[in-house]
Design a protein around this nucleic acid. Structure first.
Length: 280
DNA sequence: CTTGGACCTGCCTTC
DNA sequence: AAATACAGGTCCAAT
């Protein structure tokens, strides 16, 4: 059983089940079964180390997947004094980490996420693996899903999302390079690039950049972030937010790692009751 | 540019 | 137990 001494706290439950990845299943005794890239693997923590059961996965792959190179609190440090809610979130969930999920898998997950709750996205994800996956139920390639087509994707209960997924799979099977983002591109540029794909709008493009490309300045705004911002930062606002406005606001409020702030606030807000939340 | 409606499905409330 | 509302958005058409 390979293992790696953890340089920082790691909470597998919030990190793997919190809505970044959808391939993980909890097992008894605090274990988790899922995939990292094409490799099926079971994980568990013991004595400040993470252990895994597939020797095809190296320590550096585990390190990379959980972004263990980042010291989250020091990245956000400058913005904690002016954001007590963020300080609370990081204190309550110090082991919640940004993943570096496989980009194609992540893109598919979020194309399927529209108007769905986490549990249902996980169901769809599991059906895609079992119906179209390769050996070890590895995640199906763009070519495989393009070949499947809209109709058989609909049989996985994707609903109207099937049309978008089939079209995007078709494009990426022809032009796989469109998943490669030059490091010289700004996150905004990369987001607009992904938004050329069917079913990918501003929310999903930023989720993919944050959860799989390590672009910690990507700030996805979904209904939960909308609610969170209204309750904690804009208590009197009634009209809808302008995304362009939130982009500059979040930059000023949380700095270059605003995606991390989003991840922590989002998780804290979703897992706390309205009563336990501080007043704005 | 902004706004409103359509779009699938299954879980969660509520009756 | 059966019905109903509603949910981690995007696209397209009409102002």
């Amino acid at each position: 059983m390979p293992s790696l001494l953890l340089p920082c706290p790691l909470d597998l439950t919030s990190t793997l089940l919190g809505g970044q990845s959808f391939s993980w299943n909890p097992l008894p005794r605090s274990r988790f079964a899922g995939w990292i890239g094409p490799h099926p693997v079971q994980l568990h923590l013991h004595h400040e180390s993470i252990h895994w059961d597939n020797s095809a996965l190296s320590s550096s792959q585990i390190h990379h997947y959980f972004s263990l190179d980042l010291n989250l609190s020091s990245l956000l440090q400058p913005h904690l004094p002016t954001n007590p809610h963020l300080a609370t979130a990081i204190q309550l969930h110090p082991g919640l980490r940004p993943l570096r999920e496989n980009p194609w898998e992540c893109l598919v997950n979020f194309i399927c996420s529209s108007l769905k709750q986490i549990t249902h996205i996980r169901q769809i994800h599991a059906r895609l693996r079992s119906t179209f996956g390769g050996p070890n139920q590895s995640f199906p390639s763009p070519a495989r899903l393009a070949e499947a087509g809209e109709l058989s994707l609909r049989k996985c209960a994707l609903g109207y999302r099937a049309k978008h997924l089939a079209a995007t799979a078709q494009i990426l099977s022809q032009e796989p390079h469109r998943l490669e983002i030059p490091s010289s591109w700004s996150t905004e540029q990369a987001a607009q690039h992904f938004e050329q794909l069917p079913g990918v709008g501003p929310k999903i493009s930023r989720c993919v950049l944050l959860y799989s490309y390590g672009r910690l300045d990507a700030f996805p705004v979904d209904v939960w972030v909308d609610r969170l911002l209204r309750q904690l930062y804009f208590p009197k606002k009634r009209k809808p937010f302008r995304l362009a406005h939130l982009e500059t606001w979040s930059q000023k409020q949380f700095g270059p790692f605003r995606g991390l702030a989003q991840l922590l606030l989002f998780h804290w807000f979703r897992t706390s009751t309205p009563h336990s939340r501080p007043r704005p």
